[in-house]
Design a protein around this nucleic acid. Structure first.
Length: 479
RNA sequence: GGCCCCAUCGUCUAGUGGUCAGGACACCGGCCUUUCACGCCGGUAACGCCGGUUCGAUCCCGGCUGGGGCUACCA
């Protein structure tokens, strides 16, 4: 099996377009086949420089490596359509010779007027073949320099194919327009280029968005005219946003690369994408890329459009993070805990792992351990349910214990302090908020005794004493 | 206007001519617990509508409705 992903460099990749690439990649990997990357840059007007670099970076980040394509090369190159124009012209000439295509010099104005009339008559809009009956004349016009396009002569009859995700699809050819194959600037349209390239690159399975279904009969007609065996088609449904609209650049669909900056890990993004429109048929839903390669088949793609739910990605991201081993996480966290050493991160990971949804959460959570905790006076201190006396006694006990080396045995330290507050009739879960605020600056956050151990005796004592002082001052003011 | 695609909880989905219509996320309870989180237990929640075929339809067929797409010298 040979599949390809053929994006046009008109903007960065979003979740929907990458999911199509993922499906093509998975299908190839599952079958032990090849995955090809080809850049469809035949539209000179919409081309945005630099975007192909972005596309390449996105696929690499996700681990969707291609066997043939830009940068890696391959036996069927070049893999940029703009460098293959000679190929398209050659095959266009074949089509003309075989009577499957003809030149047309109709102006855009005439074409527009023609369509308006057809629409008014409730007919399908398609070229009326005016130029087909006057080819000698058209030839003279072309020689004289009149702009001309090459059109496919759509044969009569019906076109049918067995789509891997849709089943049998069929069209009445009479409804299909004589598609422009070569534009007047000499560049091919998508329709000619895609057929020539897919065939020359030996693509066996065309996996693309279902918006291409209506033009598939044109492509099939081209395969027939060129006497080539057509590939199998799998038209995959679109990914919708929460409002039910198709994901698009225009509607602000996020560049997939941004998910990395936001702290999502590639394996989770891949997992979430795969689950949009595909299921394993079992109850399992957490998969590594390797798992997916093993289990993915095109036949199990659900034909209905899918709404992308960011909550699902969050969940999966947390799961994938929790499944990473310490060293992987130490590596992954480098960007979000800037300036930390590997060893620091190694000590932080056990505290963070269970409580971050994205890697970026680590920045906020670890902050009080990496810098000074910011005192937030909107946080009640001592907290509700804890008297000044109890808070003071707890801090004193904690200070004394830490001075005596209590951080060497956190379990023991905790039990001692818990016993103390218990005797004063206060629940540890309530009283310990004093410690949280003292050490972390907030009543919620990382486990407080582990945090003390991370900070070390000196820093811990400093923070406890600062809190103790703050307490004295406030109770004096209060009295 | 013409043509095409799609339709199961809020979301992603499984599913069969006879099922208590299953799972996951989210949500709501509870447990665990030094906070938070993790984890565990439980709960709310779906076959769009109308016909037909059939002893019986979520499942097969048709229509409708709804959503999406194509209808360019864009992809």
């Amino acid at each position: 099996m040979r599949t390809r992903f053929a994006p046009s460099p008109t903007g960065p990749l979003h979740f929907g377009s990458v999911r199509t690439a993922l499906f093509a990649w998975l299908a190839a990997r599952h079958a032990g086949g090849a995955f090809i990357l080809r850049i469809e840059d035949t539209d000179q007007e919409r081309y945005i420089p630099g975007v192909e670099a972005l596309i390449i970076e996105t696929l690499r980040w996700l681990g969707l490596e291609w066997d043939e394509g830009p940068e890696t090369g391959g036996p069927h190159g070049p893999y940029m359509q703009s460098e293959r124009t000679e190929l398209y012209r050659t095959h266009a000439a074949d089509l003309v010779r075989g009577g499957a295509a003809y030149w047309c010099t109709c102006t855009p104005e005439r074409l527009a007027a023609m369509r308006d009339e057809q629409r008014a008559r409730h007919e399908p809009t398609r070229y009326d073949r005016r130029c087909l009956g006057r080819q000698d004349e058209v030839e003279r016009e072309r020689r004289a320099g009149t702009a001309a396009v090459l059109r496919l002569l759509m044969p009569p009859g019906t076109t049918e194919w067995d789509d891997i995700v849709r089943g049998r699809v069929s069209f009445d050819n009479a409804e299909i327009d004589d598609q422009v194959l070569l534009k007047s600037d000499g560049f091919p349209t998508y329709h000619l280029a895609v057929v020539v390239d897919d065939h020359l690159m030996d693509v066996t399975h065309v996996i693309r968005a279902d918006e291409w279904i209506p033009s598939t009969p044109k492509h099939l007609a081209l395969y027939t005219a060129l006497r080539w065996d057509p590939p199998r088609f799998a038209h995959v449904p679109p990914v919708l946003d929460t409002d039910g609209h198709k994901l698009s650049k225009r509607r602000g669909a996020r560049n997939v690369l941004e998910y990395g900056e936001l702290g999502y890990v590639p394996s989770a993004v891949v997992n979430a994408m795969a689950l949009l429109g595909w299921s394993s048929g079992t109850d399992e839903e957490v998969f590594t890329p390797d798992d997916l390669c093993r289990r993915f088949t095109l036949e199990r793609i659900h034909p209905a459009p899918a709404v992308f739910d960011p909550k699902r990605l969050d969940d999966l991201n947390g799961v994938h993070i929790r499944r990473m081993d310490v060293e992987e996480l130490v590596e992954a966290l480098e960007f979000h805990l800037p300036g930390t050493s590997k060893d620091t991160r190694r000590r932080l990971v056990p505290l963070l792992r269970e409580r971050i949804v994205t890697l970026a959460d680590a920045t906020r959570l670890a902050e009080p351990l990496l810098g000074e905790p910011v005192r937030d006076d909107s946080i009640e201190f001592p907290p509700k349910g804890v008297s000044d006396d109890v808070a003071g006694a707890l801090l004193d006990a904690c200070i004394a214990a830490v001075e005596a080396g209590g951080l060497d045995d956190l379990e023991q330290l905790r039990e001692t302090l818990r016993h103390d507050v218990d005797e004063r009739g206060v629940k540890a879960r309530v009283a310990f908020r004093v410690l949280f605020i003292a050490v972390l600056g907030s009543p919620v956050g990382l486990p407080v005794f582990d945090s003390m151990a991370f900070l070390g005796q000196e820093t811990t004592l400093a923070r406890l004493r600062t809190a103790r002082t703050r307490l004295l001052r406030s109770s004096r003011n209060g009295a």
